[in-house]
């Protein structure tokens, strides 16, 4: 994303062009929600900092620096919240189902790895990414997944001797 000559961002121009469409309103609401989550995290950090003990300037406590940063972060969050460019850019024709499936696969990886180990888990994950999400053919998916599982095993376990 680049700045235009007048200093505004391309995101600002997109806002100007499409501000009235339902999709645009959804983008804006999603964006504001995300900023609100960040702001809430900073507020949480402020409370944690105060309970950890702020101390004095001559002897800052463990909560002093996090408090300073969290307050600064909260102020920046408020500034961003008020900006028109605080929006989640949706991709025209974007695939939410692919994204969700990808996230679920990633979230499941540690649990599957715990029971099945490295090569099998890598193979399964790769097959999901290629065949299910990427909609590649079975043969290509199988070959690439097998190569990937074998290759990562060789690099990490055999070459780098990482205990897996």
């Amino acid at each position: 994303m680049s700045e235009t000559p007048d200093g505004s961002t391309t995101a600002d121009f997109e806002e100007h062009r499409t501000s009235s469409s339902p999709g645009s309103r959804r983008e804006r609401v999603t964006g504001l929600a995300a900023v609100a989550v960040i702001a809430a995290f900073f507020i949480f950090c402020i409370t944690e900092s105060v309970s950890a003990g702020v101390g004095r300037l001559s002897g800052p406590g463990s909560g002093f620096w996090p408090l300073v940063v969290a307050v600064a972060g909260l102020l920046c969050s408020i500034a961003v919240f008020l900006m028109p460019s605080a929006r989640f850019r949706s991709a025209g024709g974007g695939s939410l189902s692919s994204l969700l499936l990808g996230c679920l696969s990633l979230a499941a990886f540690p649990f599957v790895y715990y029971y099945l180990g490295l090569p099998l888990t890598s193979f399964i994950l790769s097959m999901i990414l290629l065949k299910v999400i990427g909609r590649e053919g079975w043969v290509l998916s199988g070959i690439v997944s097998a190569a990937l599982a074998g290759g990562t095993y060789w690099v990490f376990v055999v070459l780098l001797r990482v205990p897996m």
Binding site: L106, F109, L118, S122, L125, S126, L129, L130, I133, G134, R135, E136, L140, V144, S145, L148, A149, T152, F156
Partner: peptide
């Protein structure tokens, strides 16, 4: 799609 699979698997491991 192939690049994505490679990146994800290598990244997680």
């Amino acid at each position: 799609t192939i690049l994505n699979a490679i990146i994800i698997v290598v990244a997680l491991i």
